[in-house]
Design a protein around this nucleic acid. Structure first.
Lengths: 302, 302
DNA sequence: ACAATAGTGTCTCTCAGACATTATTCG
DNA sequence: CGAATAATGTCTGAGAGACACTATTGT
């Protein structure tokens, strides 16, 4: 960005001299990893030929074949090399797990607690990726032998509010359940929100983990919360859709993520500016065909 | 979180045996730092006794006394030790620069490019803190001898939109200027937003930096954008206010951050649920006194 | 009196929620 | 025909933008 400085520092060194003398190895350093939260939406089986298939939110997990947490399920991820950008490490992982590139990926949060990994100090930078399941080459890649999609379910099962002098403390216990048909893993995450005076502080902690490795349960919880939030004011939901989709399908995706039903009329009005009508229709549906839409990249974000 | 596993891995080791044999030193590791974006709002001088003082957004910078970028201004920050949480490193820096604790602090983004620091590979985790200037012990701390508040100004001075097949590319050139009365530093940041198909990708790059060290100009740009965004749908603005404030002052803060004027009537309506009226008033103002309010910690976030 | 800010009232427009109604397909 | 989804119309109320108007102070 700038030319090397010829100014001399307190030791009388120029920048060049300083850098040549710099020995980076004297400081002990943490390891840095990336953890990937790869979400998709899948149609559930449906017996009634007339009914629309229900949608479910799915997350990709990998069965650990090595210590620590051997046999448990973890987020895909890996170490960041000294010679690669953190984002490139994330892209590399994504490619190796899903075999696709050019999909939506966003940095979520960096987890910096000291005892996250029993091997050594590990700081983990988490990324969320959203995949259209139809364009997905299922479970390709090498380490991915034990990669599986899990249906994500979660609910708050306890809420405790304590009023303080100038605010309150809200403690929520949230249960996350991940189902794979064959296997179910789950965890309880405690979220404590302390509001006092003008400031708010939130902390997350894994209280109990049944088959989910490391502190990944709280990372998953955080990601779901972010996803739920962002879907309301951005267009990320479209990354979960195939290129052509019906408004009902889009609505279903919103409903699964938000965990509540929406009114079709209002939903269509709100989405109108974000989609472009095509001339194609669904068919063989057992009911009235539905117009197919695609994303409008020029919608007005305000 | 879990009891040590007695399962044996492919080498026949239990978890305990594996961990004892684990040699973390064989992998080369990056350094991890925290960078602090400490913002506050300050009244500008005002000659007319009747007029309200204008507010300005201020950012704390530190003059570098060592290579690299010696003599330039940088975000306060430092290395994360292997034995401390990343967040604790941030809190430590915050305390050493501002000498206050218990203020609003939020993790922003982790910057993972390879060539960020000429000394060695450095990954930087940035945090944003918001301070009420009135409760601030100005520039205390030790390394902070050369810490100074800079008034933040920025504006987009070029915007180029290229339409693509299924989307567009938007390139913005943004100039950030930081003023200290004595000194002015500035930088140009290029933000490229590529929308193609359903997905969007944004990248930032420092094009030209006059007196701002490292890639800190783009971190500052990112922070301002986040701050501007969050002020619209959260209560973070109150962290910039003293315990008691008038609605006009609050509105001024919103106006400075958003960079536009707001209508008082609508603003008051919107804020009504977030504040609590007190019985106190401003005085000696040269005009009608104004009721003082405080933050309502129980406002309904929805 | 005057300059300035503080604070309220009200009209309009937009938009989301709610719900009713019509349209269309396939077995 | 009947079961299901697709799609539109319309009433209502909440809330934002706009602007006019009243209130209150210190010099």
């Amino acid at each position: 960005m700038t030319e090397p400085s010829s100014i001399r520092d307190r030791n009388g060194l120029t920048e060049q001299e300083y850098l040549q003398a710099y020995d980076a190895s004297i400081y002990e350093r943490p390891s840095v990893t990336v953890d990937m939260l790869i979400f998709t939406v899948l149609n559930k089986e449906q017996d009634n030929y007339r009914k629309l298939p229900e949608k479910s939110l799915q997350l990709l997990l990998i069965k650990r074949g090595e210590h620590p947490f051997i046999g448990q399920w973890a987020l895909p991820g890996g170490f960041v090399s000294v010679h690669e950008r953190v984002e490139d490490a994330a892209l590399r992982e994504l490619k190796s797990e899903t075999n696709i590139e050019n999909i939506y990926m966003e940095q979520l949060f960096t987890w910096g607690d000291v005892e996250r990994d029993p091997r050594t100090r590990v700081i983990s930078c988490s990324y969320m990726a959203l995949v259209d399941r139809t364009s997905l080459d299922i479970q390709a890649g090498d380490d991915a032998a034990d990669a599986k999609w899990f249906e994500v379910a979660y609910h708050v099962f306890q809420e405790k509010k304590t009023n303080l002098d100038h605010g309150y403390e809200l403690e929520k216990l949230l249960k996350i359940t991940l189902r794979n048909g064959l296997e179910t893993v789950s965890a309880t995450v405690k979220i404590v929100e302390v509001v006092s005076g003008r400031s708010t502080r939130v902390s997350r902690e894994v209280v109990d983990s049944q088959g989910i490795a490391f502190d990944h349960a709280k990372i998953i919880e955080y990601a779901i919360e972010r996803l739920r939030n962002k879907i309301e004011y951005t267009d990320i939901a479209f990354n979960l859709m195939p290129p052509l989709f019906t408004l009902s399908e889009l609505q279903q995706v919103y409903e699964v993520l938000l965990g509540k039903e929406l009114l079709a009329a209002a939903f269509r009005r709100k989405m109108a500016s974000m989609v472009i009508e095509t001339n194609e229709f669904t068919k063989d549906a057992g009911h009235r065909p539905s117009k197919l839409y695609r994303f409008n990249p020029n919608w007005n974000r305000n």
